[in-house]
Design a protein around this nucleic acid. Structure first.
Ligand code: FES
Ligand code: FES
Lengths: 145, 145
DNA sequence: TTAAAATGGGACTATTTTAGTACTCATTAA
DNA sequence: TTAATGAGTACTAAAATAGTCCCATTTTAA
């Protein structure tokens, strides 16, 4: 449960690959470094560029580079770009998606959990993911109301 | 992203419904209280019973009841029963599922995040979910190694 | 003893989502 | 001018999900 789709997973691999480059890298280059298939890499790169996380340089000698430094790229925004907003249940995000909404006493609590997870993913940056052993500093009793 | 499947969602609704009963309730009774469809309710009840979260009483006047008090039922075990183990990415749980495992520098960090989420869902109980406004007390810098 | 009420287990189908691929157009450096 | 490269879009195949149905087993109650 709670799986992100593969595209999002690959997306993070690609992002961390590009974070280690000093100049734009093209799709083939990413393929060689990550061992992911070329069509998949292309798809991921396009989506990330469209989301504004990568800048693309067209034409010969073109390629992709991070739009910001890894410290300013949250895990959350990468995942959202490739796998949509975080919503643990259909009902925890928008209204009207769940048929038992009116009879359900747990919707509010799902929303709280959803917010907590969102905050966690927001606080982790690409730079953190690049570290061999990331530190997770989670201490958010104030998230709760 | 990070959605649990509908069965798991319904499962929690059913569990919270049963938590408010004083005697075993049959599938039809659950349907009436939750407004979920009967076949779906039956499926969920069977899965929860098999997982040991509910005890079933067969025969006339039979039905289902919680196997333990709500304080002793974690959100985690309900979700696992209906939607499998928590694993954000294929690679964060077991080895050998991801084709780029050998070239991937972020696998360890995914595992950390996975553990954190697991701990959060473990610490929330069914009793918490029944409260109108749950308190989330997350403060686990020691989870990290 | 019998009939009715209920769960248990499993199989099945339609739908939706996901993964992966292919093709054409636009842009740019050399 | 030309070759390299990204942008956009459409498509197919495979997998997961949701929802339904059927029949055997068990137990209560008439
Ligand atoms: S299960 Fe959908 S609103 Fe509660
Ligand atoms: S993406 Fe699978 S091991 Fe890292």
């Amino acid at each position: 449960m709670l799986k992100i789709n593969k595209l999002a997973d690959y997306g993070l691999v690609v992002m961390s690959c590009l974070a280690q480059q000093t100049r734009p890298l093209n799709a083939r280059g990413v393929t060689e470094l990550t061992h992911l298939s070329l069509p998949t890499v292309k798809k991921v790169l396009k989506l990330l560029a469209r989301a504004g996380l990568l800048v693309s340089v067209r034409g010969a000698q073109g390629g992709y580079a991070l739009a910001r430094t890894p410290e300013l790229i949250s895990l959350s925004c990468v995942l959202v770009a490739l796998d949509g907003e975080l919503s643990i249940t259909d009902c925890s995000q928008a209204a009207g998606l769940c048929m038992v909404e009116h009879f359900c006493g747990i919707r509010h609590n799902w929303k709280m959990i959803n917010q907590l997870f969102q905050k966690i993913l927001n606080d982790i940056t690409l730079a953190d993911m690049l570290k061999p052993k990331m530190k997770l500093n989670v201490c958010l009793p104030e998230t709760v109301s």
